[in-house]
Design a protein around this nucleic acid. Structure first.
Lengths: 195, 195
DNA sequence: CCCATCCATTGAACTAGATTAAGAAATATA
DNA sequence: TATATTTCTTAATCTAGTTCAATGGATGGG
């Protein structure tokens, strides 16, 4: 149960056996059925979750009532609204399970305790935030400077399993185009392949 | 000279006089003439700079040779490519002074020393990264779900002084539209006002 | 197994914004 | 002051992507 999370953390720091135990004892296993909304706009995010199995998405509801999917997360990824979690402030986002999902969760209290007893973890979480920042920056740049078709191709190349797991209109809301246009893109691409 | 930076840091942590001295002794004052490129794509970012006076922009050169402005920074803002700075990896960005600029700079070495001797600063920098993340997320969502006119209006409302200081085509490259279209937007808006 | 619901596709009409090219302002330089 | 360079504006044309509406598969629940 803890194998993957330990491997994942061990990419950044080396843990003694005791430290591993401190860590895993602070984790809480949570089962989240499909379609559960784990965090709603306006709520304070009470978890930082590592996905063992399943798939979730983080999205934002804009003033026209449109959903913009910020990211998907699958096995071995962390999900949370870190800003809300840390500053104890209301979130601007929703987090929803797209499949029955199993997570290992750190509560704010548990994370605090973890950082106090094994300060090395500061590094892990700092790196996670930074990677998150890099990936959002990257997406912003690409959203500004690439066509929807290019963004679609990059998305399926980078996350090949996600389009097989989630409805197409979620991908549209991630790419920032209408669901109909994703259809059009796919049609064009298969037409090209068959040439 | 250190008044503003101390005030800014003091929003997040409280410093004793000795701690203040440790901090300010580690800062290096740097004068950067207009048009200087302080960081180039492929270089490792060697600074985290607090702007005392002036204006810079961070931009990215996409594969078509187009510049996308990620952000502007003026007085009392920090500038850096944090990912590059911390991971000691080549940056994807350029950082350029748009005016003669005065900064207080932390080198990687100085920052390390600062965090070692005054660990409270961890908090400051964590919050800065998180705020940065939030603001990029916010921009991404708005880039996806708002029209150029709406984004332009939000930009001038949020950063009223910047359009007065930098050429309009930089704002175009920030908003993700052509410079001509910024003209069109402005024309439409002044036409409306005069009604 | 049937019905309901949810999801994807298609096409037609439309619009935001790009591109190109030219000229007009503004700013810097001598 | 004149001139060169940089920046901004305008207008015509073109295209990526939207919106709307209709149709057709899937999928799941009773």
């Amino acid at each position: 149960m803890f194998e993957n999370i330990i491997n994942s953390v061990s990419k950044y720091i080396t843990l003694t056996e005791e430290e591993e135990t401190v860590f895993t004892d602070l984790l809480e296993r949570r089962e989240v059925p499909k379609k559960t909304v784990m965090l709603r706009e306006g709520e304070v995010c009470q978890f930082e979750g590592y996905i063992i199995k399943g798939c979730v998405r983080i999205y934002y509801l804009n003033e026209n009532g449109f959903e913009v999917t910020l990211s998907f997360a699958i096995e071995d990824w962390w999900v949370s609204d870190i800003a809300s979690f840390h500053e104890r402030k209301p979130s601007a986002f929703f987090i929803e399970a797209l499949e029955d999902t199993e997570m290992l969760v750190l509560t704010p209290h548990a994370k605090e305790e973890l950082l106090l007893s094994v300060p090395k973890f500061e590094r892990v979480f700092r790196i996670l935030v930074q990677r998150n920042l890099s990936s959002v920056q990257d997406r912003l740049v690409k959203t500004i400077s690439k066509t929807a078709t290019e963004r679609y191709l990059e998305f399926v190349e980078r996350y090949p399993t996600i389009p097989l797991r989630v409805p197409q209109y979620f991908i549209a809301s991630y790419l920032g185009v209408s669901p109909e246009f994703v259809s059009t893109i796919r049609k064009r691409l298969t037409a090209k392949k068959e040439e």
